[in-house]
Design a protein around this nucleic acid. Structure first.
Lengths: 111, 111
DNA sequence: ATCGTATATCGTAGATTTACGATAAAAGAA
DNA sequence: TTCTTTTATCGTAAATCTACGATATACGAT
């Protein structure tokens, strides 16, 4: 949906949708919150925190990594993860910008 | 999500995920942008704008209506839609709040 | 009442998402 | 080496999402 984007919709709509999609599952939201609070976690820490199997957590981590919101580095047999704050703030800026633009272009609603 | 959905995530994660999910498809983002710009549209206007069948547009409208982001009123044989700005701003406030909290709780990242 | 228009809903096919267990790979310890 | 730990990936089942055509409904017009 994001990489081979069929250009049926304006580009900006794909950008917003892609960011939103990354946040559209409570597990991914929680992973981000946990990483933000702790600075970094190994995969196992997150598995203990979440009511999900290890493979499922790994899957969500992969999804977050693919949109760039988190980074992972290998640490011996473990994997350390942390939020990529540069990307996070950039994405959040885009989302906020979009919301502000929406509100700014707001015309009188009559229904 | 699953039916065997683990409802073990913190409440706030569901709230963010639900809002994000509503914005996770370019068609829904575009509908919101179109409504914001024009103030109101009948369903047919949106169908002409979007590269989608009438029934599909109706489905996306229903999804947006269910989370409260838009309202629809019957106007003769048509349906007028508009953004519910009160809800929109409330939701956007929550999203922004969450982002700010994330950035605020940010600890040093070492990976 | 009948016709035409506009839209919601139904039924459904196909793609994607989410979940899990099993397994493979990688690294340190014994 | 072999064993253990940790994590990514594979295979897959079930649920959900997205899309469409067909149909039902509602309303205005004739």
């Amino acid at each position: 949906m994001d990489t081979a984007r069929p250009d049926h919709f304006p580009n900006s709509t794909y950008e917003i949708a892609e960011i939103a999609k990354a946040l559209s599952h409570p597990a991914r939201v929680m992973i981000l919150m946990t990483l933000a609070k702790r600075g970094e976690c190994i995969c196992g820490d997150l598995v203990m925190d979440l009511p999900l199997a290890q493979s499922t957590v790994s899957q969500h981590l992969k999804a977050l990594k693919e949109v760039g919101l988190i980074r992972g580095t290998i640490d011996g047999p473990r994997s350390k993860y942390c939020v990529d704050w540069k990307i996070f703030e950039a994405y959040f800026g885009k989302l906020s910008q979009w919301g502000q633009d929406m509100i700014r272009t707001q015309t009188n609603q009559s229904c």
